[in-house]
């Protein structure tokens, strides 16, 4: 697949060195193309793109995209794509209610989430997207508890259960896959969602030059599987190695997991393997197994 050479980002932006989300925005909007309105809710500054853009209150992503789409419909400009590029806070947590309602109404919009697994804009506080045991500034490593005690919210399954026409996961480590998914979504009318794992060197505590490596390891260990779900039913795994790498390869280089005990790691390994089995079975059957 040919990745378009044309850049739609206006750079340099104000993201940190080695920001995964800045790359996610750059790649996603390359594929979206220029005929779009891009909406924002509060999040880290990823990449500014050459689109008309507006922002509203944090909790309102779904409503904002809805209003824009319905307004375009009312004035006869249904050619314009409506894209929300939100963080995990705006998707998993404070924005979930309004996004769920927009998904239920099957609004003709794009929701692209750059998932960096915590509230990075305010300095790495835990979110519903933070994985189990990860250290954040609100799930510190203390003498009583060490890191986050709850699992990561399975947002893809939540939205799949809405029966939306297109949902996919992606990773900045696999740009061709990411862009192919947006290209496919562009042919679909209705609610489209792409959740992109976007490593954050500051919050995850690894060197910024290793962002792509972290993203790839996430996929190769099964921590962040790449798949797509059509109409909330048909599932397809897009990356199926013969064997997954052990999760330690992903966990060890990130200092947010440095305090993990062998038991902690075993638990993550077991749960990852179990989820992978389910996905393989789903892929084989061609339908979602929850």
């Amino acid at each position: 697949m040919q990745i378009p050479l044309e850049e739609l980002t206006i750079t340099p932006g104000s993201a940190c060195q080695g920001c995964g989300a800045a790359l996610a925005a750059r790649l996603a909007f390359k594929a979206i193309g220029p005929n779009a309105i891009r909406h924002r809710v509060p999040c880290c500054p990823d990449s500014t793109t050459a689109h008309p853009s507006a922002s509203s209150v944090f909790e309102s992503g779904g409503a904002m995209l809805t209003g824009t789409w319905r307004g375009l419909k009312a004035i006869g400009r249904t050619d314009v794509q409506v894209v929300g590029f939100f963080g995990d806070g705006g998707t998993y947590d404070i924005g979930l209610q309004s996004l769920s309602a927009a998904a239920e109404r099957n609004e003709n919009i794009w929701v692209i989430t750059k998932d960096n697994e915590a509230y990075m804009n305010t300095g790495n506080q835990r979110s519903g997207a933070t994985p189990i045991f990860a250290r954040t500034s609100t799930t510190p490593v203390g003498s009583v508890t060490k890191g986050k005690q709850m699992r990561k919210k399975q947002i893809a399954k939540i939205f799949a259960a809405h029966g939306i026409p297109y949902l996919a996961t992606a990773s900045v480590g696999y740009p061709e896959d990411l862009i192919a998914k947006i290209n496919y979504g562009k042919t679909v009318k209705g609610f489209k969602m792409l959740i992109i794992q976007s490593p954050c060197p500051v919050g995850w505590r690894y060197d910024g030059s290793k962002t792509i490596e972290m993203a790839r390891l996430g996929v190769q260990t099964g921590i962040w599987p790449l798949y797509e779900i059509i109409d909330g039913e048909k599932l397809k795994l897009n990356y199926k190695p013969r064997e997954l790498k052990p999760v330690t390869e992903y966990l060890k280089p990130q200092a947010r997991f440095r305090h993990l005990t062998d038991d902690n790691i075993s638990l993550i390994q077991e749960e990852t393997a179990k989820e992978w089995e389910t996905l393989l079975k789903s892929d084989e059957l061609g339908r979602v197994l929850l």
Partner: peptide
């Protein structure tokens, strides 16, 4: 377009966004 939303916060944002596009 009459948008039946899930709460008043969304109703305000829907009209805000629609007004912005014209």
């Amino acid at each position: 377009e009459f948008v039946n939303v899930e709460g008043e916060l969304s109703s305000q944002v829907v009209v805000q966004a629609a007004s912005r596009v014209g």
